[in-house]
Simulated assay, not measured.
Amino acid sequence: MYIKKILLIISLLGVIAGGVFVYKVYTAIFSPNTAFENEKAYVYIASDDRFSDVYEQLSPLLKNPESFADVASKKGYPANIKPGRFLVKKGMNNNEIVNSIRSRNIPMDISFNNQERLENLAGRIAEQIEADSLELLTAFTDREFLDQNGFNMETALGMYIPNTYEFFWNTGAEGFRDRMLKEYKRFWNEERLSRAEALNLDPSEIIALAAIVQKETAKVDERPRVAGVYLNRIRKKMPLQADPTVIYALKKEAGDFNMVIKRVLNKDLQTDSPYNTYRNPGIPPGPIAMPDISSIDAVLHAESHNYLYFVADTKNFGYHKFARTLAEHNRNAREYRQWIDSQGVNR
């Protein structure tokens, strides 16, 4: 009888111990283990991250990081880490967290516009994906890639059509570049290519001209009219004489693209640069900035008119006064110079 009682007690203790063990296992795996108040948080796991890196990043988001590490180990996660951007929702348990960061890489929207150089573009993209700016710039300027796809160092910026695109965060530099080439080819569809051909210009020339149009006016509704002026000049074999190209030439010559130039002086027009459209006929060898789609389409669908000149309108800021004759333009330009002198703008 005494032995039976002992065995019964041992059995009960075993059941209790087993129950406690099962409870602890269940709690570790299936109880909520998030410590943040927002509805969701994102975890960014780099291509060379180890489990210690993942653990360090996740720890501030968890009530009990140790229990997460234990569950992750039991599920074999440390030996199968995947890079990417992963979602952790408020109230997730350890099992759900491991499943999420193991296999649910979430794409994100990448945006860029108005970049002046490939260096600026590389910096902008590096803020949004895993690849760093040096890796991106190296991919952007790969001579073999440029040669194979009809670009050079001057026209390369035009391959990147500003917009919002969906990417995985862990996209590499060459992966980003190659995707942008596909988007460029998609952008230059049959209709746009036909419009360019009708203007007797190729896509690189359209983009270079669009960059000037965008620099000349921030008003989207005015861009087709400005584009029409430059196309009229090209047809008449007149120099473009675009001040933004002179400003670009000055910055390039100085090696300082942060330089602020509010006024182009007569001496600046003598700058010896292929980008100076006062000294060189035709379209510059490449874009002076990244034009957005509205500027590109403004060139492709330019307004048909007889204007050959324009200057800033001092009474309607942001817009311009257009002229058909040099005499009319000189009157408008004189009015503008008087106004800018009155503002004390010397450079």
Rank of each mutant, 00 (worst) to 15 (best):
A72W: 00
P107M: 07
F86N: 08
Y44P: 08
R50T: 05
K74M: 09
F86K: 06
Q57T: 12
K75V: 01
E119F: 10
K90L: 04
D53P: 08
M92F: 14
K90E: 06
K82I: 08
A72V: 07
V88P: 05
N113C: 03
L121H: 06
E56S: 14
S103Y: 14
N105K: 11
V71Q: 05
E127K: 13
N64S: 14
K40Y: 08
S111D: 10
P107T: 12
G91Q: 03
I106V: 15
S52N: 08
K40P: 01
N80A: 12
E116M: 05
N105D: 14
F51W: 12
A79N: 15
L62W: 09
I110H: 13
N113V: 12
L62Q: 08
Y44L: 14
P60F: 06
F68E: 11
V43A: 02
N105A: 10
S111V: 01
S103P: 08
N105Q: 10
E119C: 03
K82N: 12
L58S: 05
G91K: 09
E96W: 04
A122Y: 02
N99Y: 04
Y44M: 15
D109S: 15
S67T: 11
E119T: 13
I81Q: 10
R102E: 15
K74W: 00
I125H: 11
M108H: 04
P60Y: 01
R102T: 14
A126W: 07
S52F: 03
L87I: 11
L62P: 08
N93P: 14
K90Q: 15
S73C: 05
A69L: 04
L58A: 03
R85S: 08
S47Q: 09
S52I: 14
V98D: 04
A69F: 06
K89C: 07
N99T: 12
V98P: 03
I106Y: 13
G84S: 12
K63G: 13
F51N: 00
L58G: 08
E66F: 10
E66L: 15
L61V: 02
R117S: 09
A79V: 00
R124K: 06
V71D: 07
Y44C: 04
K74A: 00
E96N: 11
G84Q: 06
D70S: 07
V98S: 04
R104T: 14
P60D: 01
I110S: 06
M92G: 02
A41S: 13
E66D: 14
A122E: 01
